[in-house]
Design a protein around this nucleic acid. Structure first.
Lengths: 236, 236
DNA sequence: TCATCCAAAGTGTGATCTCACTTAAATTTC
DNA sequence: GAAATTTAAGTGAGATCACACTTTGGATGA
C-alpha cells in the first residue's frame, strides 16, 4: 500500500533549464538538496521513470544523476532488481559518519575562524537567530534549513572547496535522518546550547572552543539519532 | 600533435563481463584504478568514444562511469565543449587534500591498530618488503602499487567502509601526481623511513606513533610534489 | 607569407527503444 | 476458500540515433 500521508515528491517540480547547466546537473542538484533537506525517508525507493516524470525530463540525465548520488552514498541499490533507495544506515555506519564529521568539521572550523570577517559574522548571526526562532516555534523545516546554513557558512569561510565537498557528502548521508534526530526530547535545547557556544567562540576568535562546540553538537545529534533508531522509529 | 611516447591506453583492454556486475561499474572500477595508478597524466583528455572503443562497450555505461568519476573529483570538465580531463590541481587544492588526508588517514590509523592481528600483520609486512625492493631497483610501478597496498591494508583494518571510501577518493585525486612525487630526489629514502616507522609502531601497538608516521609520510610526499610542480614538471 | 574563412571531424547531451529481469496482481485450479 | 500458476506491469541496463556545439585542418584569398 502506498503512503498517502507523506508525498515526498510534492515539493519537487519541473526542471528549470538554465544557461550553461546540463539537465543532469540540475537533476543532481535538485535530488541532492531534497535528500539533505530530508524530503525522502530512509528506505524510500527512487525510480528512474518516476523522477523523470516529476522533473519532466527523459530518463538519461536522471540515470546519471542517480548514479552520481549512489557514488556519493546518498542512494544505494537494493535487491536483485537493483532498485535505488534512500540508504538505511546501520549503527556502525552512523558511528563511522559521526567520527569522520568530528574530524573534518572540527578541522574546518579551526581553519575557518581565522578568515571570518564582520560580513560573514553577520550572515552567521542571522542564521543563528532564524534557527533560534525556528526552535521556539517548533518549525522543523526552518530549523533544519538554517542549521545547515549556520554550519556551512562557517566551513565555507575556511575556503577549502575539497574539504567542503567532503563535508557536504556526509550531510547528504545524514540528511534523511536529521528529521528524526530533531524529534528527540530536548534536542532543540541541547543543539542550540552547542550553537550558542560556537557563536561565542567565533566572537572570541577561539579556534579550540569552536572546534569543541562543533564536536559536541555532532556527538549529541548522533546520540539522539542512535537512541531514536534503537527505539524503532523507522519501522513505523 | 599526439604524444606517441606515452600511450595511456596501452594497459587497458576489453571489459571482462562478470556475473552480477554492470558494465558501468566495471568501467568505473577500471578507470578509477587507472587513475589511482597514474596511468593518465594531469591535463590529459578523456573522451567518451575513446574509452568506449578501448573497453569495447557502448557510450552509455562509459558516460555514467565518467560522470561518477567527475563527482569524485577524479575528472573535471574543461572548456566550453565540456571535455573531460584529468584535473590539474592548484597549490591550494594540494594543501587542501594534504590536510584532509592528515586528518582522515591519521584517524583511520589509530582506529586500525587495535584490530590488526597476526594475519593482517603478515600481508602488511609483505607489502612493505615488496615496496622496499621496488625502491631498491627503482621500479616505480611496483613501488606505487605496494605503497597503496601498504596504506590501504592498514586503513582497511579499521573496518570503517565510509571512511575507507573517503580515503580512496583522496587517493584518486592524487594518483595521477604520485609518479611525479616519487621522482623527487631522496623521495624513496624519506618515504621508506616513514613506512619503517609505521611498521615499528604497528609492531609496538603504539597508535600515536603510527599516526605520526603516516602524517609524516603524507606531508613529505606533498612537499616533494609541491616543489616538483613549482619547477614546472607538468609543462613538459 | 600571412590572415581569413569554411568545411569536416570530434565533443558531450539528451531522447528513444529493446531487453532481461523482478515484483505484484489476477487468474486458474484443486 | 486457499494455494499454485500465469499474466501484466514495473524496474534498471545498454545500444543507438539526432542534435548543438567546439575545435581543427585545409583551402582560399589578399
Amino acid at each position: 500500500m502506498k503512503d498517502i500521508q507523506h508525498d515526498s515528491w510534492a515539493r519537487l517540480g519541473p526542471l528549470e533549464l538554465q544557461e550553461g547547466a546540463t539537465a543532469q546537473s540540475l537533476v543532481y542538484a535538485t535530488l541532492r538538496h531534497a535528500l539533505i533537506s530530508g524530503y525522502f525517508r530512509p528506505g524510500e525507493e527512487i525510480s528512474l521513470r518516476k523522477v523523470a516524470s516529476v522533473l519532466e525530463t527523459s530518463v538519461t540525465p536522471v540515470r546519471e544523476a542517480l548514479r552520481r548520488l549512489e557514488g556519493d552514498g546518498g542512494l544505494e541499490t537494493f535487491g536483485g532488481n537493483r532498485v535505488l533507495r534512500v540508504p538505511i544506515l546501520t549503527d556502525a555506519e552512523l558511528i563511522d559518519i559521526r567520527d569522520i564529521r568530528v574530524n573534518l568539521e572540527g578541522f574546518a572550523a579551526t581553519q575557518a575562524i581565522k578568515r571570518i570577517g564582520p560580513a560573514q559574522m553577520r550572515v552567521i548571526n542571522n542564521a543563528f537567530n532564524l534557527m533560534h526562532t525556528a526552535a521556539k516555534i517548533g518549525d522543523v523545516d526552518m530549523y533544519l534549513e538554517n542549521n545547515w546554513r549556520f554550519h556551512s557558512l562557517i566551513y565555507r569561510a575556511a575556503d577549502r572547496p575539497i574539504l567542503m565537498s567532503q563535508i557536504k557528502g556526509l550531510w547528504l548521508r545524514v540528511g534523511p535522518l536529521m528529521r528524526i534526530a530533531v524529534a528527540a526530547p530536548m534536542h532543540f535545547d541541547q543543539s542550540m546550547a552547542s550553537h550558542c557556544a560556537a557563536l561565542q567562540a567565533l566572537r572570541n576568535g577561539d579556534p579550540d572552543a569552536l572546534r569543541q562546540a562543533i564536536i559536541h553538537d555532532i556527538s549529541e545529534a548522533a546520540s539522539d539519532l542512535g537512541k531514536a533508531l534503537r527505539n524503532g522509529v523507522l519501522q513505523k
